[in-house]
Simulated assay, not measured.
Amino acid sequence: MTSPLVGMRAVVTGAAGGIGAALAAELIERGASVVLADLSPTVVDTAAVLGTSAFAWTGDVSSVEGIGALIDSADDSLGGIDLYFANAGIIGPSMLGESDADWDAIIDVNMRAHIRAAQALVPRWQEAGSGYFVATASAAGLLTQIGSAAYSVTKHASVGFAEWLAMTYRDDGIRASVVCPMGVNTNLLDDAGPAGGAAQKAVTSAGTVLEPAEVAAIVLDAVENEQFLILPHPEVLEMYRMKGSDYDRWLRGMSRYQARLSEQ
Rank of each mutant, 00 (worst) to 15 (best):
31 G>D: 12
93 P>W: 05
77 S>K: 15
14 G>D: 06
40 S>D: 15
56 A>K: 02
74 A>R: 03
17 G>I: 12
109 V>Y: 12
55 F>E: 07
29 E>F: 06
82 D>M: 02
67 I>P: 05
110 N>M: 04
78 L>H: 11
36 L>N: 10
67 I>K: 05
40 S>Y: 08
84 Y>E: 05
67 I>F: 02
91 I>S: 15
84 Y>T: 00
65 E>G: 03
60 D>W: 01
19 I>A: 15
63 S>D: 08
91 I>K: 07
76 D>F: 10
109 V>F: 10
109 V>E: 12
52 T>A: 14
46 T>F: 03
92 G>N: 09
40 S>G: 01
65 E>A: 11
12 V>A: 10
32 A>D: 05
37 A>Q: 07
33 S>C: 00
45 D>S: 14
52 T>V: 13
80 G>A: 07
44 V>P: 00
37 A>P: 05
62 S>R: 13
79 G>E: 13
50 L>S: 02
88 A>W: 11
83 L>P: 06
27 L>C: 03
59 G>C: 11
31 G>C: 03
100 D>N: 09
71 I>P: 01
40 S>R: 11
59 G>A: 13
79 G>N: 08
26 E>H: 14
61 V>W: 05
92 G>V: 05
11 V>L: 07
18 G>M: 00
26 E>G: 09
76 D>C: 11
13 T>S: 09
99 S>N: 04
22 A>G: 08
92 G>I: 04
88 A>F: 08
28 I>Q: 04
73 S>P: 00
67 I>H: 03
74 A>Q: 07
49 V>A: 07
69 A>M: 03
44 V>D: 00
59 G>M: 12
75 D>A: 13
38 D>I: 06
82 D>Y: 08
11 V>K: 09
91 I>G: 15
29 E>N: 14
75 D>I: 11
12 V>C: 13
46 T>S: 12
14 G>N: 07
56 A>I: 01
14 G>C: 04
12 V>F: 07
55 F>G: 10
80 G>V: 10
99 S>T: 14
27 L>P: 01
